[in-house]
Design a protein around this nucleic acid. Structure first.
Ligand SMILES: [Zn+2]
Ligand SMILES: [Zn+2]
Ligand SMILES: [Zn+2]
Ligand SMILES: [Zn+2]
Lengths: 137, 137
DNA sequence: ATTGACTCTATAGTTACTATAGACTTTAAA
DNA sequence: TTTAAAGTCTATAGTAACTATAGAGTCAAT
């Protein structure tokens, strides 16, 4: 079964442009083209794209996915590289969660300092933002 | 007290390029220039930049900050706009935290499926990633 | 043969910077 | 006063992972 890019897009849920982008980025290259230069894909390509999509849903970067794909393609390499990447990625995600949680606290405190019916002249939010400035300064 | 961009950078902790960038983006324009066209700043500019920096630390976008600054400059406008912006921002942050928390769970499960001393041929991580694909398909 | 849907490449835009290059200005020492 | 170092200027390109065009060519059905 051989399909063109539009159908691959439908099957995979990726956009046509995204698939072309992965081609340019060497993640999923169409090995064959039609006479008129249309990209042609087979079952293996579908699976590879779904693999990529799943990895993206885990927020892995294209560079990381490229590495996973190449490890996947050479079965005798060791697990360590895969492991290390996933671990670093986990750390990064956890750091980001911690940052955002902190941020969320500050934003909520800020939100509480305003009760909507004033002019901004007396707005607690802007007052707080301005005060933070004069403290730093 | 009038200073040039390099000193403003030192005082504020922003880079020189960042300050130039804020100039281009109309967040902090140097109202006067030296004879040789160097940007010149005063105390009010320092405070404005610190305000911007504080807002950025809350992850507000430059567009949002531009809006805050303009509200700040017209004291008779109402608080509602400020409030709504902050609330939307909070929602967005909370959504992102929820996403990342979910992600973190998946990544940890993935990590547990490998014990490092195998070749990737038998790697649980890659196996799982590949299985996820054939399920979707 | 013609039409409409599809695909092609190349290019620009998104966000908030960062990093150059090449030219000009300022400041301080010689 | 000349000169050299340090600072600054604009303009441009790069970052990540797409998204959205434009303009041209291809394919499938009538
Ligand atoms: Zn990562
Ligand atoms: Zn208010
Ligand atoms: Zn926001
Ligand atoms: Zn493994």
């Amino acid at each position: 079964m051989i399909i063109k890019i539009g159908e691959l897009a439908k099957i995979s849920g990726c956009s046509v442009q995204t698939i072309r982008h992965y081609d340019k980025e060497q993640l999923l290259s169409a090995k064959i083209r039609s006479d008129g230069n249309f990209r042609l894909y087979d079952q293996a390509d579908i699976e590879r794209l779904l693999f990529i999509k799943h990895c993206r849903s885990l927020d892995l970067s294209l560079a990381e996915i490229r590495q996973l794909l190449s490890l996947n393609d050479s079965p005798m390499s060791q697990c360590d590289d895969v492991n290390q990447m996933i671990e670093q990625h986990i750390e990064q995600v956890e750091r980001r969660i911690a940052d955002l949680t902190q941020l969320n606290k500050q934003l909520k405190a800020l939100r509480l300092s305003c009760n909507s019916k004033r002019t901004v002249e007396h707005c607690g939010i802007l007052k707080q933002l301005n005060e933070a400035v004069s403290q730093t300064n």
